[in-house]
Structures are given as C-alpha cells and as structure tokens.
Simulated assay, not measured.
Amino acid sequence: MATFYDPGADAAEASDALRGLAHATRSMGEHPGDMYTVMGDLLSGVRSLRQVVDQLATAHLDQRFSAFDDSGDHTAGATHALAAADELHQTGTLLDQAEERLDQAMNAAGRIAWHPDKPEAAPSRWVSVVFLQGEDAEPVLDVIDRQGPDAGIAYLSGWDMGEETMNDAMENGYVYNQPPAGMNDKVAEQGEYALTYNPAMTYVGLTRRLTDTPTSDDGLRPGGLGNSVGAGQASLSGGRGISFGSNHPTAGRAGTSSPGREPASGSAAGAGAATTSAGSWFAHPGVTAVKRDRGLGR
C-alpha cells in the first residue's frame, strides 16, 4: 500500500506492481474487454511518472550544492547533479510524447465492441435414462464399488433405448439443464452420460446429454430445458468383465456387448420407468414408501 510520504518504499511498490502487470498482460488477449480499463490505469500511471521525473530533476538542481563525487570533489558532484537533472528533463519530454500516444490509443480502443470469436455453446440438456433404488439399485452399486463409476455407466446404458428413451423423458418431464443430484450424491460423467448415485441412500440413476438446439420447453420440470431431438444409443464396455444381472435389458442376449433395443421381461425402459415408485430424482428413497404406507399417495 502506498505511503504517500516514503519515496523509497512507494517506488519499490510501484516497481513490483509494474512487474505484476507485465506478467498479467501476457494473457491479455483472453480478456479483450479488460484492455480499455488497463490502458486507462496505465495512462494515469504515465502521468504520475511524468510528475515523478520532473520532481526528481528539480531535486537534483536544488541539491547540487551538496553533491560530491566518491573522492569528495564538489565540482564533479555538482556537474553530475546537473547532468542527471538534464536527462530527467529529457525523460519527461519523452513521457509527454508517450502520454499523448497512449491517450490516442485509448480513444481508438474506446470505439471497439469486442465480440467472442466463437459462438456460445447451447445450454446443456439431460434426459433421464433410468433411476433405480433399493434392491433394484444394489447390483449396480456393487458394480460401481468393485469396478468404478465407468462400469456403472456401462451397466446402466443398457436401459438407453435411444429416441424412445428421449421421448419418454420428454413426455414425463424428466429433462434437466444439468444432471440432477442431491447434496450428498456422487456424480461421474463419461461421454454423453452422467451417473448419479448414493450408496448410503441406495439409489442410482443415469442421464444422457442432448446437444441439439432447444425449440420448446413446454411441459418440462422447473429448471429443465428440452425438445424432441434424435439420440443415438451407447455401446456397453463388455470387455471390462462386467456381469449383467437377469434384470438387465441385455439378459439372455448371448454373444453381444451392446444393449438390446427391447428390455428383458419385467425390466424398465425409458426415462423414469425403472424408478420403482421413486417419482422424483430429488425425493428421499424412503419418502415415497412412507407416503404409500400412510395412504398419502404413490
């Protein structure tokens, strides 16, 4: 912080600040909107510097009668003081020119409206592929615990029926602007999928990112963005040694490592279909059961 009374300390701080500015402006092109402000502060600094060199020149002139060289020669010392004052005056003249040029640069820069060189990305939208809880979620959580989240994503992607899954999600409003997750949930992403799971609450779900431009948000849940778009089907990582249970859509389809278009009998297909009375991503897994037991609705 400037002292406003200690020239030595303030000069050292100014030097450090300029070194910092020289370092920071190396990436100035990444923030073009800040350049005009930086130039304005720099112009103010040049004007202050002009005042400093002028005051230094005056001080050398005023104190020349106290100037000596290293051998104690006063005449030589006074001559050096006059020479320093003259050079400082020359520096001030050059700083006047620098100030004028910098001021003109600011005038030109002030007429620039910076636009991003790349279009902004469209908002992300995520559709629910499947949500499992309780006993239905335990096999998937075991896979995640043994082999990691990527294996869980590969497992759950078997419920992704492509456009059918997307249409079901749109119809039921399971479309979000980010993967839905509670405070204590864990989230892992791989490619177009996001895995949300909570071992303590025994639930797991998979969402898929949609990248097409949205055309409508009618009928969607609050915070969701979406429209009817095409969606491909992901392949499973069968080479990882993942064991798919009998309730998995690929059960009984020997010789293939990709999910079947139709789920096995009794399995859930499409967004939210495998929620087993969950009703919502954000509801506690036990809340729905309590409501049902108390006759408060399903």
Rank of each mutant, 00 (worst) to 15 (best):
A289W: 09
Q63P: 01
P149I: 12
A76L: 12
L220A: 01
L21K: 03
A122W: 04
G241R: 09
A154I: 05
S265I: 08
A274H: 06
F282I: 06
L49M: 08
N177F: 00
D70Q: 08
D10T: 07
D217A: 05
A85R: 05
D96I: 11
S267Q: 15
L95P: 01
N167V: 00
T93R: 15
P139K: 10
Q90A: 08
P123F: 00
H31S: 15
L42I: 11
A113F: 11
G92N: 14
R221S: 02
P249M: 02
A22K: 12
G77M: 03
G286S: 15
S237E: 09
G191T: 07
T58M: 05
R292G: 07
E163F: 02
E192H: 04
A78Y: 04
V187C: 04
T91R: 10
S157C: 14
M183Q: 13
A251M: 08
S48F: 13
N198L: 08
Q133F: 02
Y36Q: 08
N227V: 00
S246H: 11
E13Y: 05
V46W: 12
D103I: 01
A154Q: 06
E13K: 04
G20A: 13
N227A: 00
F244L: 06
H89I: 10
G266Q: 13
G219Y: 04
G232V: 03
L56M: 13
P123M: 08
A14G: 04
I242W: 07
P222T: 07
S27A: 12
N184I: 06
D150M: 13
R50A: 14
A59P: 03
D217F: 06
Q178Y: 02
W126S: 05
K118S: 09
G158Y: 09
R209W: 00
E120C: 08
T288S: 15
Q63S: 14
V290A: 14
D34L: 15
P214K: 00
L88G: 06
N167R: 02
A9K: 14
S216W: 02
D160Q: 07
D145G: 09
Y176M: 00
N167A: 03
G134I: 03
G255S: 07
G255R: 06
G223V: 05
A109L: 15
E163C: 00
M28A: 15
V130P: 06
S48I: 15
A12S: 14
A108C: 02
S265E: 11
G158H: 03
T276R: 11
A289S: 11
N107Y: 15
V143Y: 01
A181M: 08
A67K: 02
E13A: 12
D218K: 05
G245A: 10
S15R: 12
N247A: 15
G238N: 07
Y197L: 03
G226S: 02
V287D: 12
A14R: 08
D96V: 13
A188R: 08
M1P: 08
E138T: 14
L56K: 04
G191H: 07
A181F: 01
L141D: 10
L210P: 00
G260A: 14
A14I: 07
L18S: 11
T37C: 03
M1G: 10
P179A: 11
Q97M: 12
P263G: 15
S280F: 05
H80N: 13
S280K: 01
V229S: 02
M35T: 09
